[in-house]
Simulated scan of single mutants.
Amino acid sequence: MEPDDSDDEALLTRSARDPAAFEPLVERHAGGLHGYLTRRAPAVADDLLAEVWLQAYASRRTFDAARGTARTWLFGVARNVLAAHWRRGGREQPGPGTPGDRADTDPWQGVDERLDAAAVAPFLRHSIAGLPHVERELLLLVAWERLTPTEAAAVVGIPPGTARSRLHRARARLREALASTGPSPSLLDRTGDFA
């Protein structure tokens, strides 16, 4: 049985007086947070994840269920840890990597799609990296981390309506950029997470 958000929120709230209640949150969300960090800073993702848990545990009393779910709060902590890492390194946020492959039933269709994707991947990475920071972050939080636009808005710290508008704009820019490369229709269909 999959735990629900209210269960996470209750655990996070309870952990302020019972530290052992924090452990199930680590077990439930470590994979998603690690994936978020790995896609953005692969060489140091493990270290950053440890920092996320330290900061989340230290600031667990600041969680406010009225501002979002425990999962959203944890992604916000991860985003802050990542931003601090990039500031310490004195460099700009790197561009995104390539989303994972999808399993297909027809192996030859999969080969064709991978070849198309491989040809377009550098252009797509460049296009995503060229998006304004908040639009790029919203897009990746929704596409890769499977957050809802409202959850992504909470992570980024903007109103949900603004997030939906910026997400729409980012998707339109990517759709336009992909159309200009002339990829096969199947590749454009596979960009549904972005488009």
Rank of each mutant, 00 (worst) to 15 (best):
M1G: 13
E2H: 09
D7L: 14
D8W: 00
D8R: 01
A10R: 15
L11E: 08
L11I: 04
T13N: 07
S15R: 04
S15C: 11
A16Y: 02
D18N: 12
D18L: 14
P19Q: 08
E23P: 00
P24C: 07
P24K: 12
P24T: 13
L25G: 02
L25H: 03
V26P: 00
R28W: 05
H29Q: 12
A30C: 07
G31M: 05
G32I: 02
G35P: 01
Y36E: 06
Y36A: 09
Y36I: 07
L37A: 04
T38Y: 11
P42V: 05
V44P: 04
L48N: 05
L49A: 01
W53R: 00
W53P: 01
L54W: 01
Y57T: 08
R60K: 09
T62M: 06
A65V: 11
A65R: 15
A65Y: 06
A70D: 03
T72C: 10
F75P: 03
G76P: 02
G76D: 05
V77P: 03
V77F: 01
H85Q: 13
R87H: 14
R88N: 12
R88V: 04
R91I: 13
P94A: 08
P94Y: 03
G97R: 05
A103G: 12
D106S: 14
W108P: 03
L115A: 07
F123A: 15
L124A: 15
L124W: 06
R125F: 05
S127H: 03
S127Q: 04
P132V: 10
H133L: 13
V134E: 14
V134P: 03
R136K: 07
R136F: 03
E137K: 02
L139G: 11
L139T: 11
V142H: 05
W144Y: 07
W144L: 12
W144A: 11
E145K: 05
R146M: 05
R146K: 12
T148F: 04
T150I: 08
A152G: 07
A154S: 15
I158W: 00
I158R: 06
P159W: 10
P160V: 02
R164G: 02
R164M: 03
R164L: 01
S165K: 12
L167S: 07
A170F: 02
A170C: 03
R171G: 15
A172Y: 06
R173E: 06
R173H: 09
R173K: 14
E176C: 00
E176L: 04
S180F: 09
T181Y: 09
G182Q: 03
G182I: 02
L188N: 00
D189H: 09
R190D: 13
T191Q: 15
G192M: 09
G192E: 14
G192Q: 13
